[in-house]
Design a protein around this nucleic acid. Structure first.
Ligand SMILES: NC(=O)c1ccc[n+]([C@@H]2O[C@H](COP(=O)([O-])OP(=O)(O)OC[C@H]3O[C@@H](n4cnc5c(N)ncnc54)[C@H](O)[C@@H]3O)[C@@H](O)[C@H]2O)c1
Ligand SMILES: NC(=O)c1ccc[n+]([C@@H]2O[C@H](COP(=O)([O-])OP(=O)(O)OC[C@H]3O[C@@H](n4cnc5c(N)ncnc54)[C@H](O)[C@@H]3O)[C@@H](O)[C@H]2O)c1
Lengths: 207, 207
DNA sequence: ACTAGCTTGTGAAGGAATTCACAAGCCCCG
DNA sequence: CGGGGCTTGTGAATTCCTTCACAAGCTAGT
């Protein structure tokens, strides 16, 4: 398959969110123009994004809301449950563990891991906090699909290496640092400090 | 000034992080190649990024670590304190309020706002939780520079409109939705569901 | 002072993503 | 059943970003 740009996948995710809203309101069809307006892009962009995967619309009419939503869920791989583990039961790990938005989209958090003996054995919103020493054994047994890294930057690369070795192929990283992994492992980093610095830059360099 | 790409600003932020690490270790100079290796990019990219702002290196030698760090802090607008308010004292708002990484970089959280009367009047790690009704008055008095939006998606656009009206020019949004604001207001959205869906896509569409 | 060895800074080339623009196709209405 | 009015799907054009490639310039060593 032709390589799909990251930005395209992100926009598909946005379109899906609007489609679900429209589905809830019982709308039957939507035009690329409408999706674009809501999503902050252009209608040509919407159509181009979709065209990589097939043709889903009817000329003169637009897209069937439920059909396009189904197609997008299929494309994004949301037709199944994804099993997620969280490493680091700190403040951000706890917020994520309790976040309802994940479950809603088919991402089930199966366990959390931590090094702190005071935390191990406890629970986060019903999710067991386990000793990180069990990581490899548990991954071999449970086959989680995705790991969320929510530990301090210092330990992040070492834990990532362990996750990779254990067979995890997708990681969402909250530690503010660049991580290195083999090319068959997808790592996405959410770096809030970086976003704030982007705002600082924008405020500083407006002419 | 020439328009600077978002991706460039993000990389500057990454370079600065490494420079600060090098500063701590007392290294005097660093080459574009070294920065590139650490930051997961190429040396040409590093030099091009810097070239938009001036020339900071010495041919044959590389960049002076403290000088380049200072220059980047200047470029990113980190030479001053930025005053931040958090709207939404929920799980993610609380995690952010207690996050040390912000203060470290000169982002000071001056207040949090919420609608919930049970929360208003309380504190988050020393930060006052105020009634959202006071938002406009407080902004006029305190002049915060940046607002962080950590409330459910439904209310986000309405609160953003109030923030814009009150004069805020930069917003970091955690609600999973596209927000619309005038062009002189910079809004950055951190959408974790979208990132997870990017991972789902990657796992589904590997050949 | 000169040379060997690096590394920067930057035009030019190349590649990727977005926007343009329009033919093709569908629906509705008369 | 044919025409008007829309909207899609997509090559071509454009814009934006990255990579290439090399002259210019610095340092250290002799
Ligand atoms: N709190 C935030 O709002 C926020 C925002 C952006 C980024 N981050 C980043 O997220 C990460 C976590 O931040 P936090 O605020 O939740 O910190 P925290 O100190 O509250 O939590 C970190 C947790 O990780 C555990 N831990 C440490 N090393 C570990 C290891 N090797 N294996 C397993 N567990 C380990 C600790 O015991 C602790 O429970 C940091 O990298 C931070 O920079 C946090
Ligand atoms: N928790 C997470 O890990 C996480 C992750 C990603 C995104 N988010 C997003 O962040 C936002 C907040 O999530 P959360 O988990 O912290 O939710 P939460 O329910 O814990 O907190 C929301 C807080 O906002 C307050 N609030 C609601 N409407 C308000 C308004 N109009 N003005 C001021 N305050 C208001 C509520 O009283 C509550 O205290 C949501 O949009 C969520 O989708 C959360």
């Amino acid at each position: 398959m032709k390589r799909i740009a990251d930005s395209t996948v992100r926009r598909l995710s946005i379109y899906l969110r609007f489609l679900e809203e429209f589905e809830g309101r019982g709308l039957a069809t939507v035009s690329s123009d409408e999706l674009a307006r809501r999503g902050g892009t252009t209608s040509a962009q919407v159509r181009k994004d979709l065209s990589f995967f097939g043709s889903f619309g009817k000329r003169g009419l637009g897209y069937s809301v439920p059909e396009l939503a189904t197609a997008l869920r299929e494309i994004l791989g949301l037709g199944r449950e994804w099993r997620v583990v969280i490493v680091g039961a700190g403040k951000i790990g706890a917020a994520l563990a309790q976040y309802r938005g994940f479950k809603q989209r088919g991402f089930t958090i199966v366990a959390a891991y931590d090094t702190n003996p005071d935390k191990v054995g406890g629970r986060l919103d019903g999710i067991e906090i386990r000793d990180i020493a069990r990581l490899e054994r548990d991954v071999a047994a449970d086959h989680p699909d995705i790991a969320v890294l929510a530990i301090p930057a210092e330990g992040a690369q070492a834990v990532l290496d362990r996750l990779v070795y254990a067979g995890i192929k997708a990681v969402l990283n909250f530690a503010p640092m660049s991580l290195h992994a083999p090319s068959d492992v997808t790592v996405k980093t959410v770096n809030m400090a970086m976003e704030l610095e982007g705002l600082s830059f924008a405020l500083t360099n407006r002419e």
